[in-house]
Design a protein around this nucleic acid. Structure first.
Lengths: 345, 345
DNA sequence: GATCGGGGGTGAAACGATTTAACGCAGGCC
DNA sequence: GGCCTGCGTTAAATCGTTTCACCCCCGATC
């Protein structure tokens, strides 16, 4: 039933030694065409499939890489995963997907599993900034690429996007459009992306020469739709509402947008909105959302390439910290439109 | 440094034989507490990690399952994947994620890879209805569970949702709410889900005793947001517009909703909308979307359980075809409301 | 004509775990 | 005392590849 046909069976069938079969598989050029064909024929007839476990055991070179993400449900990570999967599969590698769901416990279980699988390397968005999991991986001798997480550690690669620049772009844009009472709806500050984006926003205000008071930070517990909705309710309850809101990610922005629109607030006439991530749904919102785009798939591809390269040339590999630039995509949710007949400015 | 510490190193360190170390690892109860502690200590000190390749080679039982999906970007599959990952990781299995992206070529490459990895089993949403890839897998002796794909083949497990019932629920609901010019925006008929959902819709009309003319099918090339937007434009151009639209999935519905809302059409007063899948964004839309919910995560969990069970008890396993019932989630986009309801604009 | 060289193969030794038969030993039974 | 039993441990076989040292044969070279 199983696949009980081994390289040895192929060998006897083709009347050659196992070594020759192995050569046909791995270095076809060294074996005479006639025997090569004979072996290939035998492989075909017997339906032989290499056993990767045995291969890996002997050769020591694994053919899989691990990917540990914070939340498979988040379109951001999904797109990153797609990029990883693409290049890995081009290189003939399998991708082992792990979802830490923000839990260090799950994360460490997954890391353990990956270590046992002796994967080529691990791409990980760590749950904690202390990088305990990452350290464990490196102790076990596997190369690690940090995804979307900053580090000063020169001992590992990292691929991220300049969140500070993104925050700055977003707020600079809002200021340029003439908005002057900006609220940034932000995640908890232990999330480094949230911190960075806020710092960028503050930078933008400073560079514009305005008073720091034009920007206010409203913290919410999580970067999801529900938090966005809650934030909107809070803002609606205020006597003085902001004229623009910058959300730390698109999920927040979508939640916010929904509640505002349903409360009769006009976007962007009454309140402008800018999101972050530019997930596909941002463009499909009731009011197409201005957002800061991150090259998600590229992040994944780059990270996969790095980890594959590192294990191809061990020793001489130079760890890199790649930082992509975000790009502001302006859509209707933040365009200054005529309030009455003329542009207020 | 690699992880050059093997079970043998542990053995010498703990002054026992390798067999004993193996016993500590796999059947701790048969070894005397004293030696057990000694061995555990050695493992700890040396930082030993089992080599799964060697394990699998000898024992023949792999610790990974394969998951082949049509599109990692689609929230539907993402949620299924989460379910799979959850139960797999509980059972100590790794999940190898493969994205066929609707291409048979990619699919077969992935299948080949999974075969070489000797995975426990494969959960797959096949690209083609001819199931060539599936056949190849089974020839290689691995168990297969079809995800969201119907089959009469008693030789394999399948987990799906009753699409016909879902289509029927959606349209029955619309009819009950009093809508009488319904358009179903549907995908190409070679997509079996599209076909089934439409059949269900037709059933609903028939059972209600109405004229078949109350339901019209409008086909679009793909089940995505852009197609939904196109469909909306077509409907807007008509002299006689429908009073309700049933979309074959939520992506279509979101695209449609966006264009309608922006054209000043009131939802549901002028046109009601029902989607399918109940992805998280459905509830967060400008007008919360009525949708047919599929137990996505449960699908994943169930499929993973089946494939694990099958390889636990080979031979006596009974292949199952699990069919879940969808559930209509009614939200504002399809509720019959008084026309004079306050609607700020 | 002996030597060299090299293409084409062979065969056995790893790789690192699991598994199993065998073994030593202590105690209990006859 | 001989014998069986059970327990804890050991040593060796095994899984399917890859790799590497070596062999054989034949034509070219000096």
């Amino acid at each position: 039933m199983g696949s009980p046909v081994s390289i040895r069976d192929v060998a006897t069938r083709a009347k050659v030694s196992v070594g020759t079969v192995s050569n046909v598989l791995n270095r076809p050029e060294v074996v005479a065409p006639a025997t090569r064909d004979r072996v290939m024929g035998a492989i075909e007839e017997l339906g032989f499939v290499r056993n990767d476990a045995a291969r890996q055991l002997r050769s020591g070179t694994p053919r899989a890489i691990g990917l540990v993400v914070l939340d498979v449900g988040n379109p951001f990570f999904t797109d990153v995963a797609r990029g990883v999967e693409d290049t890995a599969s081009e290189a003939g590698h399998a991708v082992i997907l792990c979802n830490s769901d923000g839990s260090t416990q799950r994360e460490s279980r997954h890391v353990e599993l990956l270590a046992e699988q002796r994967v080529h390397g691990v791409l990980i968005t760590p749950v904690d900034t202390d990088l305990a999991a990452v350290r464990r991986l490196r102790e076990r001798g596997m190369s690690v690429v940090l995804l979307d997480h900053p580090t000063a550690d020169p001992g590992l690669c990292a691929v991220a996007v300049d969140d500070r620049a993104g925050g700055e772009q977003a707020v600079t844009h809002l200021l340029a459009e003439g908005y002057e009472r900006i609220v940034m709806v932000n995640g908890p500050s232990h999330v480094h992306q949230a911190r960075q984006r806020h710092e960028g926003a503050v930078d933008a205000v400073r560079k514009s020469g305005r008073d720091a008071g034009v920007l206010e930070e409203l913290k919410v517990p999580a970067l999801n739709v529900v938090s966005g909705q809650r934030a909107a309710e809070q803002l609606l309850a205020r006597s003085v509402r902001p004229d623009a809101v910058f959300c730390a990610n698109d999920l927040l922005a979508l939640g916010l947008l929904q509640v505002l629109v349903r409360a009769g607030v006009r976007v962007p006439e009454d309140i402008a909105i800018v999101g972050y991530d530019d997930i596909d749904f941002a463009a499909a919102a009731a009011v197409p959302l201005t957002s800061v785009r991150q090259p998600r798939q590229l992040i994944g591809r780059t990270a996969a390439e790095l980890v594959i390269a590192e294990t191809m040339t061990p020793g001489e590999h130079e760890h890199q910290h790649v930082l992509f630039a975000p790009e502001l995509v302006v859509r209707e949710s933040s365009r200054r439109v005529q309030r009455n007949r003329r542009r207020p400015r």
